[in-house]
């Protein structure tokens, strides 16, 4: 354990622990699997900070690792899972039966279901947008060009705003 590793880990916890928890719960329906995923992300972050030399911002580094570990986690459970293109989804899907009974917020469950149904990169863009990342930041984290990010966030905005029924609070910045 190096002092820099410890420092970066604590810094990441202070800034991103809630976002990583939300990512884990969005991608894994079962609470125990979500907890496993969260721990895996923490572990990979810890290991990765030994390699971090300021190649990018801490935020980009943390989000890349978190999303890549989550994609591997879901991919390991279901090899090449069947996904639906984002532009073919007209409304947010109904939550899974197992989740419906426990959901405090129906709209939130539907967003979770959407994130599990779309392709990994689409889900990553939507999640980063929900966390308040700008279009440029999302492009840097995901490796997509800004146009591809804008198309996806626009689509997500249209779908999710309807579910939350608060169109006036919706805002998006691409840069």
């Amino acid at each position: 354990m190096t002092a820099q590793q410890e420092h970066l880990y604590r810094q990441a916890e202070a800034q991103f622990a809630p976002a990583i928890a939300r990512l884990a719960h969005a991608m894994e329906r079962q609470p125990d699997r979500a907890a496993d995923l969260m721990q895996d992300i923490h572990f990979e972050l810890w290991r990765s900070f030994a390699r971090f030399e300021g190649q990018c911002s801490l935020s980009t580094w943390v989000y890349r690792i978190a999303h890549n570990v989550a994609a591997d986690h879901v991919g390991a459970a279901t090899r090449l899972p069947k996904t639906i293109p984002l532009d073919q989804i007209e409304t947010l899907p109904a939550p899974h039966d197992a989740e419906r009974g426990h959901a405090e917020n129906h709209a939130m469950s539907r967003v979770h279901e959407l994130l599990r149904q779309v392709a990994p990169l689409d889900a990553q863009v939507i999640l980063l947008w929900l966390e308040g990342q700008t279009g440029a930041e999302i492009a840097e984290i995901t490796g997509l060009n800004s146009n591809a990010v804008a198309v996806r966030t626009h689509r997500a905005k249209a779908l999710i705003a309807k579910a939350f029924e608060e169109p006036q609070t919706v805002g998006i910045a691409h840069d």
Partner: peptide, 12 residues
């Protein structure tokens, strides 16, 4: 970083 579009999301 900009303001999150849905506070219900980031409140979790």
């Amino acid at each position: 970083m900009t303001n999150p579009p849905f506070l219900q999301w980031t409140d979790q």
